[in-house]
Simulated scan of single mutants.
Amino acid sequence: MQDSTSLVVGVDVGGTKTRLQAVAGEVCVADHVRPSSGWRPHDPAAAADWLTALVHDALPHGTRPSAVAVGGHACETPRQCEQIRAELRERLRIPALVVGDAELLVPAAGLDKGVGLVAGTGSVAVGRLGDGSPLQVGGWGAVLGDEGGSAGLVREGARAVWAAHDRGEAPDELAVRLIAAFGVPEVPALGAALESAADVSAEWGRHAPVVFEAAEAGSGLAREVIAAGGRSLAALVVRLADRGVPVDHVVVAGSTVLAQPALYDAFAVSLAAALPGSRPSPLRVPPVEGAVALARSIL
């Protein structure tokens, strides 16, 4: 049986998968990965039930943690996070903390302040004001926002292709590849294909690689879409800076920006121009390590 005074649990609930780590001192007691299906962050009781079951299933029999911290996908406001935290504490009877999943990046990087920037399927940036209050910008979904995320890049790629079509230009490499990706015969049909998606973020986002492939093949439209995506990501950091968040360190994560050097470079160049004192760095460890660090901090 583990010493409960030193056992802490960190949970990273992502949009697709969830990872839990339980650590006693420097010893990893459990490292559990499962799908995030069933995660309902807008129903605090259901979310707390889901997390409680996860903790019980992942920990060795007879083990009781002394604190738990959760970074939850789609935990969008402090009020929402607090509601889940209160429900979770009531069930586990231990100190608990619930934040948005992007807030795990800064502590995962070993920092106590800075900006966490995520560009995966969507895009969001988070930080904290001088009084400790959390602040989030972006993350408005693929239909209205998420510029620089994979779904947003596909949306903007389609817009660029439509504009070129309206100017009477022949389809370039980006148009050709988007037409093929969505299985339609011509540029005008892209609109109906995008609008018919049952899950806009997922179905648009999975086609993002064609934007980067088109850029490598010489598409000027694709290159401008990527450059604009980088500028949009930098603009998220600028918004946080304008509202008083320390932005000296920007910890970057996300399946799109870290997998596509063209987008990361466009972001870094734009950030340097707008905020020369900000230093971006890719996150090199799993975000769940930030949840573990937060759990330790609330003991």
Rank of each mutant, 00 (worst) to 15 (best):
P78K: 13
A266S: 12
R40N: 12
P134H: 07
P78C: 12
A227W: 02
S201Q: 14
L59R: 08
V269K: 11
G152A: 00
C28P: 10
T121L: 00
V11T: 09
V184Y: 07
T52D: 02
G229I: 03
V257S: 06
R223D: 10
T63C: 15
Y264Q: 06
P287M: 01
V33N: 14
H165K: 06
D265E: 15
L111T: 01
P209M: 07
L153H: 08
D112F: 08
A217I: 04
R93P: 02
D31W: 11
S123A: 13
T5C: 03
G114R: 03
G230D: 08
V68E: 00
W50G: 02
R159Q: 14
S196P: 01
A175D: 05
W204K: 00
W162C: 09
G132E: 08
A109M: 02
Q2V: 14
E76F: 11
S66N: 13
P171R: 04
H207Y: 06
P134L: 09
A222V: 09
A142M: 10
G168Q: 09
T256M: 13
G100L: 01
V200T: 13
R231D: 09
P185M: 00
W50Y: 13
A192D: 15
T77I: 10
A227T: 11
R34C: 15
I179N: 02
G277C: 11
A102K: 05
G100C: 10
T18D: 09
G148Y: 02
L144D: 03
R167F: 01
E82T: 05
V137W: 01
G145Y: 03
L153E: 05
L117A: 01
G220K: 05
V238G: 06
A189N: 12
V115I: 09
V200K: 14
P282T: 05
H207G: 03
E203G: 03
A108I: 08
Q2T: 15
G191K: 13
V237W: 05
V8C: 04
A30L: 11
K17R: 14
C28E: 15
V33F: 13
A158M: 13
L275F: 09
F182D: 07
G114W: 06
A108V: 10
G62W: 06
D131K: 06
Y264P: 00
L178F: 07
E213S: 13
I84G: 06
R34K: 13
G110P: 04
G157Y: 07
A268S: 14
I298D: 07
Q136W: 13
K17N: 15
A295F: 04
R19G: 11
G62F: 08
P282H: 05
L59N: 07
G141R: 03
G114D: 08
V161H: 03
E203C: 05
A74L: 14
Q80G: 12
V285Q: 00
E213R: 10
A109G: 08
A46L: 11
A197G: 06
D199R: 14
A274K: 14
P287Q: 10
A273C: 13
G114Y: 10
P65L: 08
H165S: 13
A175F: 08
G220P: 00
V29N: 06
I94V: 11
V118L: 11
